[in-house]
Design a protein around this nucleic acid. Structure first.
Lengths: 304, 304
DNA sequence: AAAAGCGTTTGTCGTGGACAAACTGAGTTC
DNA sequence: GAACTCAGTTTGTCCACGACAAACGCTTTT
C-alpha cells in the first residue's frame, strides 16, 4: 500500500464518530483505559484510525447495543466478536434457517426492481395488514440480523427501507379516511431515525378506520406534547428500534406521560421497549404488529 | 417559575448540541472567547443553558449557515439577529409577499388533511412535473424561510415533509418503468438528511422515462461509489440543502468524481452547490428543477 | 421474588492549550 | 475589472488528563 492509499484509508476521530456512532470522548477514554483502539498519529499528533480498527469498533458497538459491556469485549479479536454477534442473534437458530429468504436475497443483490415487484405482489395477495405483519416485519428483522452479522451494508439497508417505504406509503394513502376515530399521532424521539416501525404501525391501523398522522422521525419531546394537545389526538404512538437505549426510551416515555393529559393514550412499540411493561405505568406497550390491533380494540372498548 | 420548571427548562451541553447542531467543543470555545453563551452551572459545575440562550444560539446558527461569522453576531440581541435573518432571506421582498400562501398556512395550522387534499388536487391539475417545480419547490422554500424566521417549528416542518413525501412517492410509483435509460442513482452524503430534494428530482426524471433508484439519505461516499459501479448506473444524483457546508459538498463531490469511472456522470443540486460550477469540474451542477430536464436532454444528446 | 446496599464500570463533562484551515482585505498582475 | 497572491486574523477541532454521577453486577436482606 502506498502512502496516498494509506492516507486515504485512515480515518480521523470525527470520521470514526460518524461511522461507528461512538462519541469522540468515548473513543479517547477507551484508548486511555483499555488500550483499544490504538490509532496511529499524523504529523500533528492527531489520531488516525486504520480501517481494521474502525471495523472492530463497529462490531463492538453492535455488541454493546445488545447489552454487552466494553471491558469484557474490547480485548477480543475481530473473529471472536463476530462469533459473539452470531450467538446474540440466533436464539431460535433452526427457525431462522427455515424462513423464506427470497426477498432478503433480492435486497442483498440490489435487485431493486424485482424487490419492488415482489413486495407489490405480496401486498396484493395478502392485503395490507397481513403483508405488513407476515412479510415486511420478518423481512425487516432479517435485514437487521444480516446487518448485525455484516452481511448487508449501508446501501442494501437503504435500498430496502426506500422500497418498503414506497410500497407502504402508496398503500396507506389509498386507505385514507377523514375524521375517523381514534386519532393517532405517530412519531419517534429525536435520537431515533428508523421510520419503518411508524409506517408499519400506520399500515396496521389505517385499514381499521383509525385516522393516523405521522410526523416522521426525530420529533423533540416538547413538540410531541404540543402537537398532540393542539391537534386533539387520542393516542400518541412511538416507535423504538433495537439500537435505541432502553433507559432513554423509558425516561422519555415517562416524561411524556407526565406532560400529556391522562385522556391522551401513549402506545410504545419496538425492540427497545419490549418486556418493559412493568416499568412503564400508564403506557400501552405494543409487543408486535398484531398487538397493535389488540390495543386498538381495547381503546375502542374503553371509549364506546 | 418553580424549581422543577426551571430545572426542566435549562439544557445540558449535550442537549444544546442536539437542539442547535453546534458541537460541544464549539459551545465551550465561544464561551471562552466571546463570553456567549454564558450558561448557569449546576451543583456539579456543569453548564445549564437557559432557553433564551438556546434560542439565540439557534438564530446564530442559521446566520452562520448564511455565511455570517460568529465574532460579528454573537454580541447582537435576539431582536437584531432576527432582523438580520429577515434581511438575509428577502432579497426579492415584494415577490415573496405576492406569493400564494394558502398552502403555507395549512402547514402552519397543522391542517394535515386539507394539506394532503390540496397537494393531491394541485398534482392532478398540473401534472407531476409542473406540480413539483411550481408548487412543491416554492412551498418548500417558503417553509424553509419561515423556519429560518422561527415562524414554523419542528412539527410543522415534519408534517410538511411527510405529506409531500406521501404524495410524491405515490405519484412516482405510478410512473415506474423498467429498464429505461439513463439509469440514475439518487442519494445524499452522510451529513445530509433532507430527502425532499431527492424526491423532487426523481419526480422530474421519471416521467421523462429515466429509471431512478433512490437510496434515501445519508449514504457514505464509498458506498455510493460501490453501488453506482455495481448497479451499472449512468448518473449519480446528489442533493444538498441550504444548511450543508459548501466546502464539504465540494470536497466530497470532487472525491467522488475521482473515484467513479468517467463514464458515470455526477449531477449535484441544491442551495449549497448553486453557483459553485467553476469549482466543480466534471460535475453537472443542476441549478433548479427545470434545469434537471435540461441536464437530461444534454445527457441524451451526448449518448444518442 | 423483590428490595436494598455496595464496590466497579462507564460515559460525559470540565479546563486550557495548540494549530491548521478558512476567511478577510490590501496589493499586484493580466 | 477580474483573477491572483499573501500576510494577518478568525474559527473550529483536536489533545491531555482529571473528575464524577449514573448504570451495572453482585451479595445480602426483607
Amino acid at each position: 500500500m502506498n502512502d496516498a492509499a494509506r492516507f486515504e484509508a485512515a480515518s480521523s476521530i470525527a470520521a470514526v464518530e460518524r461511522d461507528t456512532g461512538l462519541p469522540k470522548d468515548t473513543l479517547r477514554v477507551w484508548e486511555r483505559r483499555y488500550g483499544f483502539p490504538a490509532p496511529a498519529r499524523d504529523a500533528n499528533g492527531e489520531r488516525l484510525y486504520p480501517p481494521e480498527q474502525v471495523e472492530k469498533l463497529r462490531l463492538i458497538r453492535r455488541l454493546i447495543d445488545h447489552g454487552r459491556r466494553p471491558a469484557g469485549i474490547v480485548g477480543a479479536s475481530t473473529a471472536e466478536l463476530s462469533r459473539m454477534l452470531e450467538d446474540c442473534l440466533c436464539p431460535g437458530d433452526g427457525a431462522a434457517a427455515e424462513r423464506d429468504d427470497s426477498l432478503l436475497q433480492l435486497v442483498r443483490l440490489h435487485r431493486s426492481l424485482e424487490l419492488n415487484a415482489a413486495l407489490r405482489q405480496a401486498l396484493m395477495k395478502q392485503g395490507l395488514q397481513r403483508f405488513v405483519a407476515d412479510t415486511v416485519a420478518p423481512l425487516a428483522a432479517a435485514v437487521g440480523e444480516a446487518w448485525m452479522r455484516g452481511e448487508v451494508d449501508v446501501p442494501e439497508e437503504h435500498l430496502f427501507t426506500e422500497q418498503v417505504q414506497n410500497v407502504l406509503r402508496s398503500a396507506i394513502s389509498a386507505h385514507a379516511v377523514a375524521g375517523a376515530r381514534p386519532r393517532v399521532l405517530l412519531t419517534t424521539f429525536p435520537e431515533e431515525e428508523h421510520i419503518l416501525g411508524l409506517l408499519m404501525a400506520e399500515a396496521m391501523l389505517v385499514p381499521e378506520g383509525a385516522s393516523c398522522l405521522s410526523l416522521g422521525t426525530r420529533t423533540p419531546l416538547a413538540d410531541i406534547r404540543t402537537a398532540a394537545v393542539a391537534g386533539g389526538f387520542d393516542i400518541v404512538g412511538l416507535s423504538f428500534s433495537i439500537a435505541y437505549p432502553a433507559r432513554q426510551a423509558i425516561d422519555g416515555l415517562l416524561e411524556l406521560r407526565a406532560s400529556l393529559p391522562p385522556a391522551v393514550a401513549i402506545w410504545a412499540g419496538g425492540a427497545a421497549v419490549r418486556d418493559k411493561h412493568k416499568r412503564l405505568p400508564g403506557i400501552r406497550v405494543v409487543g408486535d404488529l398484531d398487538d397493535t390491533l389488540a390495543a386498538l380494540r381495547e381503546w375502542r372498548a374503553a371509549h364506546a
